[in-house]
Design a protein around this nucleic acid. Structure first.
Ligand SMILES: [Zn+2]
Ligand SMILES: [Zn+2]
Ligand SMILES: [Zn+2]
Ligand SMILES: [Zn+2]
Lengths: 136, 136
DNA sequence: ACAGCTTTGACTTTCATTCTCAACAAGGTC
DNA sequence: GACCTTGTTGAGAATGAAAGTCAAAGCTGT
């Protein structure tokens, strides 16, 4: 079986920046944040840690329009989806009981098995909208 | 205003392979298919054409789990979603009136504007399931 | 301290996608 | 058809996210 991960200071640091932000962030952004905080963590380590956290279901991952991965530690561990601000990354966790059922049903009715679904909502949060308005 | 696109033999070729396949395919796969058919189209051109078709809403684009873009020319032009076989790319177009309403509503209720949604279902199609079973 | 792990990080490598730019082809005009 | 103007092509270089390499450094139990 796979050993439990050792808690090293860099893994702790990555976890901390994740906890500290409400927004979805890319691996590179997190790497920058760490640098700014004074913690020097190699980029490769950030990627590895994020990967591990994602595999363990401890962080949620989603992909931007152009394929970049964004990570965020969510409040709840149960299955849920997100409403993400496309300009700042701020996110709200959302449930969709109806949607869940719909997805499973549609999948099965078409003869597909091992159904999974990708459901994310994108928008502009109130704060970002205000900023855009102001600067125009 | 933007001129209409010129119809070149390479754009026609890309459109043809797209029309010929029911499955979601990557730019590289399409490039291979073209090569196999004898049409020599530069990879860059395949990407450019796909980009243009996507911008014009003539092909649907989605991203695999690891961020690669997949393209497919769908039967209908109206907004819809897909149930895609994660092993062969075969896809079924699906509607979700309920889901559409749900997405818009959730977005608005959280103070977000310009709501868009990403909804895709993944599974293993009957055919691929049969193949796996056979070879095990 | 020691041995036997795991983890790190600077660097290299991979791989999809985009860019550059000179040669080329479409469409319109006479 | 000959010709011009302008969009298009493609080989190769460039980009950028993500994963791999491997020697040095860090833990953990004895
Ligand atoms: Zn925002
Ligand atoms: Zn769900
Ligand atoms: Zn299949
Ligand atoms: Zn929809």
């Amino acid at each position: 079986m796979n050993q439990p991960l050792r808690m090293t200071k860099q893994r702790a640091a990555v976890a901390e920046v994740l906890d500290a932000s409400d927004e979805f962030r890319s691996a590179q952004q997190l790497h920058e944040l760490l640098r700014d905080r004074g913690d020097t963590v190699g980029l490769a380590t950030v990627y590895r840690t994020l990967q591990a956290l994602a595999d363990g279901g401890d962080v949620d991952v989603l992909r931007t329009d152009d394929g970049e991965a964004l990570y965020r530690r969510c409040a709840r561990a149960e299955h849920h989806h997100h409403l993400v601000c496309r300009s700042c990354g701020r996110a709200v966790e959302i449930d969709g009981p109806t949607v869940e059922a719909w997805a499973a049903e549609v999948g099965a009715s078409q003869g597909f098995s091992d159904i999974e679904h990708t459901i994310e909502l994108w928008g502009t949060c109130a704060q970002c909208r205000a900023n855009v308005t102001k600067s125009s």
